[in-house]
Nucleic acid binder design. Structure first.
Lengths: 109, 109
DNA sequence: TCGATATTTCCAGAAATATGGAATCAAAGA
DNA sequence: TCTTTGATTCCATATTTCTGGAAATATCGA
């Protein structure tokens, strides 16, 4: 991941409403959630949320597909994984001090 | 790490100049780099860089201490590690899809 | 085709962030 | 103490981002 893309992803997540939306999508699992449902859960106007989902989508952090009248969003783990790899490997040169805590998490699964 | 702090760290890194500064500090190792040297390397006005180092510092991503007339900055791996843990564990609930690529990096060291 | 529902796009004002010149502060040396 | 050097703070301007009303688009069912 080149740094331009990483910055886009970092900026996308550096926003309370967008971070909350992403976390809800993670909890929703593979079925995802339609935009309207997400707006209701977040108590956020539909158009504002739509803008924010667009930002997350362009950053590669969420996916979407139409289902009838709804557009269903889902967390894109691949995008998040690339960002985490960028931070640990490209950015911190893979130093154990940054990677170790992640190891513990990963091994405990 | 609570999300307020995570957002602060994400926003701090979501900036070309600040990300570049952080990476230089990683490469500089434990001795760190004085602000002026960093400004020279980044071809950035001293006051602009100072503002940005302040943002990184408040976000817990760099440390600093005075050495004579200079103020020496260093990467704070603990802060970065907390951010990475937030993204993988708190944010993605420790899903292997996000953690695995990091594992590979960590194990290859 | 019409109306209802779901979502996005357009747009403009408000708010936050970025930038760098000038002034200020801190340390060192003469 | 005065000057020089290194860095930060102050401040005004420029730019970007955020927000949500209104309008537009898409789909479905009658």
């Amino acid at each position: 991941m080149e740094s331009k893309k990483a910055i886009e992803a970092l900026a996308a997540l550096a926003h309370e409403g967008r971070l909350a939306a992403f976390r809800l999508l993670v909890r929703a699992g593979d079925e995802g959630l339609p935009a309207g449902e997400l707006a209701r859960l977040l108590a956020c106007p539909a158009n504002t949320l739509s803008t924010n989902l667009g930002i997350l989508s362009r950053a590669g952090l969420v996916t979407s597909h139409r289902e009838g009248r709804s557009i269903v969003y889902g967390a894109n783990y691949d995008g998040m994984s690339k960002l985490v790899t960028f931070l640990t490997k490209d950015c911190c040169e893979g130093r154990a001090r940054v990677c170790e805590p992640v190891d513990v998490v990963a091994l405990s699964l």
